[in-house]
């Protein structure tokens, strides 16, 4: 039975699409048949991050409205052959996603995939609710910053109230905290919320910490999920996240400051 994972955060710009792309690619690299769906109707961007923007012919909304088949709309990744991408539509019609339509597409995808990764739009409107509605598990992407932590808390409340599992009284969605853009040096200076602060506040288990890294921008510039950059610490951190998600035990990395010389430590920079 395929598992549905929503990547969500409430706040925009915290790394949902970056995470969806790398997480899905990571799962596929491990041999699982994976599909990543862009739920951000009207503001499609997953295709750019995945580097398949020029191969988009049909999209999620076309499939829902019966204008194209799923096979026509799915884009097969050129780097990892167990990975498919279902792009969002650029339509401005906010009601293009219907509950029944989304359910029908997900049920069809379940037959041929092991994991379905839903890249949620920001906010708590229809698109975000649709993305989390059918989820079995959730990756809550959070930056070490007040507004992001608050919005993550809000989205956790919505997962527990408005998802299918919550409404039908099923087993609770399994929530995972993913901290992104973490800068251990600033944490050490007391300028940034620490991992412990954030886990205390949100009260859900931590699945990984992605360090602030220049390679994320470089990866998005070139349309390659950062998880495929084997020189990048962010890429390595995403591989760890995938491994932990699959039940492996991996220690957290990139959460301590690299040791500086004595003088630098004494006077700071």
């Amino acid at each position: 039975m395929a598992k549905i994972i929503v990547v969500t955060s409430g706040k925009g710009g915290v790394g949902k699409t970056t995470t969806s792309a790398s997480f899905a690619t990571g799962l596929a690299k491990r041999g699982y048949k994976t599909v990543v769906i862009d739920f951000d109707v009207g503001l499609r961007n997953l295709d750019l991050i995945m580097g398949c923007e020029r191969r988009v012919v049909y999209d999620f909304v076309n499939v829902i409205q019966g204008e194209a088949s799923l096979v026509q709309a799915l884009i097969k990744d050129k780097r990892v052959d167990t990975l498919n991408i279902l792009p969002a539509s650029q339509t401005r019609d906010k009601d293009a996603l219907t509950q029944e339509g989304v359910e029908r597409v997900l049920n069809e995808l379940r037959k041929t995939h092991d994991y379905i990764v839903c890249d949620s739009p920001a906010g708590i409107e229809t698109g975000a609710i649709m993305a989390l509605y059918y989820a079995d598990e959730a990756l809550v992407v959070t930056n070490p910053e007040v507004s992001s932590v608050r919005d993550s808390d809000r989205i956790l409340g919505i997962l527990q109230a408005k998802s299918k599992r919550a409404k039908e009284g099923g087993e609770r969605i399994k929530e995972h905290l993913l901290i992104t853009r973490y800068d251990p040096a600033r944490v050490e200076q007391g300028e940034m919320l620490s991992i412990e602060d954030i886990t205390d506040l949100l009260g859900i288990p931590l699945i990984g910490v992605i360090p602030e890294s220049q390679s994320v921008l470089q990866a998005s510039n070139s349309g390659v999920p950062v998880v495929l950059d084997d020189k990048s610490d962010s890429g390595a951190a995403y591989l760890d996240v995938v491994a932990r998600f699959l039940g492996e035990d991996r220690p957290m990395r990139f959460i301590e400051v690299e040791k500086k010389g004595f003088l630098k430590r004494l006077f700071g920079t």
Binding site: R150, M192, L266, F267, G268
Partner: peptide
């Protein structure tokens, strides 16, 4: 850094952030 530490200057902003979030939550 060291000077601030020795003078015990102000509460760190990360601590302020955490306290504010705890209250609002």
């Amino acid at each position: 850094t060291l000077l601030n530490y020795l003078l015990g200057r102000r509460k760190k902003t990360a601590t302020v952030a955490k306290e504010r979030l705890q209250i609002i939550f």
